[in-house]
Design a protein around this nucleic acid. Structure first.
Lengths: 345, 345
DNA sequence: CAGCTATATTTAAACGTTTAAACATTTTAT
DNA sequence: ATAAAATGTTTAAACGTTTAAATATAGCTG
């Protein structure tokens, strides 16, 4: 019953040649040396026996698995999911398979994941690193394991990465708000050491400073990623109902944006009448908000493709260390409608 | 430089024993036979040399990869993403790795994916099958490849599956609408041969029939999955603005629900004042809609866990063919607020 | 001390590939 | 006619594991 899968040996036996010859034919090697008839017979037999090369054996021999490991921050996050999809596509195009895992922002889970993936002999890694994993990455580097960081990176670490120009992205958003007549602008970001998030804060402050607007500590809310719902609710409440209410809020991630919009809805604050809002990232959810949202759009496609390409280049020893900070687009919609100036009224 | 990874052989050499012994020690086999000191020395050496077992070699030898293949319909869909996450977790708990791919509902892509995954010698497959893949599944079955269907299944195919009790789920939703005073109820579903979707239609009709309400063809919209945005827009328009407008709409998937809500917003129809709505599946997006949505909640966790467990049981030859139709919950919120009856006014 | 048992370790083959090198046969050149 | 070159195919080893079977050594029994 349980017929074993056909191997090169089986084909060799069927045709009456050596497995070597079968291997050569099926891999199109030494083409000029092999007689047409035999090659034909071998191909026919392979087809007849429904031959499927055993990638495991191949991997063992060649010490290459044509498999990439992908570690995302949280596969349930649409940004991660989109990235995973792009990377999977690009890898597939180059005949690579992707194994993925989600670190849930935990350094321990991250450690475990890299171990698992490396045990499976992935050829290289694409990593969205959680906070506090810098030393782990340095260790990988020391072991000469090829990897490319995506989305997040550590300025002190000399590695290839593909990320956003986060400061610029946020700067652009805040400039847009200022140009649209908003002056009291709040920020809802994370309480984290992650460099890319800090950069978003920096872009926000830089835009305010350049416009000679005050940079208030109380308007920069830092949320703990583990308690988004409650902390964002509180933050928004303080921003819009406090003694110095803001005229606009800019968010530093899609999850923060969604939590924020929910709370604004709950507080019955109207956008942009009561305040303007700029979201981060795209999300289907935004489209169901009362007002079409102005948001910072990340080039997910480019990030995923470039990162994959860099990694594959490294694997094919076309060595190149690349540090890319791609530019975000600001999609301007009604949530940041320009303020009617008193002069015009 | 590029130091090769340490193998059993290296450890054996370091300690001065055979690789066999190293293998035994590191796998805790023949424990009672091996001298404590040697075992200790071997373990120490393994640690010192940072030994990582080569899973590829192991797989080749044991003809088991401890890898599951997961084929989802579309990883960008939150339902798929959630499922992937649950499955990944459950597999990981049993020390299995998951390789996944997304068929995008295409039988060709599906074919390619199964081939890829099988070439990588996955031990078994978890499959959300696209329409038109029944024969491919039958073929897998013929080749005695262990798999479990998730979410979708084919009644004619004797396979293990874990899915929803789709008819029941929809029946429940429509009954709830009827009990809440709605009589003219529209359905937005897919134009597909997929059994689980058809079942949703059946549940809808059954509820209407039992309540002696007319079942109108024009109230059952069938959308082509490739053109959701445009076709749902049109369907909604017809349902709410046509000669016989409906009082309620029930959707047959999360994507349809989101597209529908967007259009209702565009048409400025108020829920539940102008009409009631029942969504399918959960989605973060629902929470940003003007009205908290009544929706059919799938037990994603259970589906993923059960499917994985069944597959693993099969792999451990605790054979069991299981066909599970799990029950959905109806989360009742404001979008189906009971109609004020004239009597009460 | 022969024979047995228990304990500790090794030998050798296998999993399914790849590939350098060897071998055998035919063709070409001189 | 013979050496050299070209053509076609095979041999053998290797990748890093696992594991049945063989072997070696010591301890015990009567």
């Amino acid at each position: 019953m349980m017929t074993r899968k056909t191997s090169l040996k089986d084909i060799a036996q069927a045709v009456g040649v050596s497995t070597t010859l079968v291997s050569y034919v099926l891999n199109n090697k030494k083409e000029n040396r092999i007689s047409k008839e035999v090659a034909q017979k071998i191909r026919q037999a392979a087809q007849d026996l429904n031959y499927r090369p055993n990638q495991i054996a191949k991997s063992l021999k060649l010490n290459k698995t044509r498999t990439l490991g992908l570690i995302v921050a949280d596969i349930a996050n649409p940004f991660s999911a989109a990235l995973a999809r792009v990377i999977e596509d690009e890898a597939d195009r180059q005949n690579y398979t992707v194994i993925f895992g989600s670190s849930e922002e935990s350094p321990e889970k991250f450690q475990k994941l890299t171990t698992t993936l490396l045990n499976r002999q992935v050829d290289g890694l694409l990593i969205a690193a959680p906070a506090g994993t810098e030393s782990q990455l340095a260790e990988l580097q020391k072991q000469a394991i090829p990897f490319v960081l995506i989305d997040r990176y550590f300025p002190a670490l000399k590695t290839s990465y593909v990320a956003l120009d986060n400061a610029q992205a946020m700067y652009k958003a805040v400039r847009h708000l200022i140009n649209s007549g908003y002056q009291n602008i709040g920020l809802v970001s994370f309480n984290t050491s992650l460099f890319h998030i800090c950069e978003r804060g920096r872009g926000y402050r830089q835009a305010l400073q350049e416009a000679k607007l005050p940079v208030r500590k109380s308007w920069q809310k830092e949320i703990n990623n583990a308690h988004i719902a409650s902390e964002v609710s509180k933050a928004i409440q303080e921003l819009v109902l406090g003694p110095k209410p803001v005229e606009a809020i800019v968010f530093a991630s899609n999850t923060l944006t969604i939590a924020g919009l929910k709370q604004l809805k709950r507080l019955n604050k109207k956008v942009p009448t009561d305040l303007a809002v700029v979201g981060f990232d795209e999300a289907e959810a935004y489209e169901l908000f009362e007002t079409p949202l102005t948001y910072i759009k990340q080039p997910v496609q480019e990030i995923g493709e470039l990162a994959t390409q860099i990694l594959l280049d490294v694997l094919n020893s076309n060595n190149r260390m690349i540090q890319a900070n791609l530019e975000a687009a600001l999609v301007i919609q009604d949530s940041t409608r320009p303020v009617m100036t008193p002069v015009l009224l």
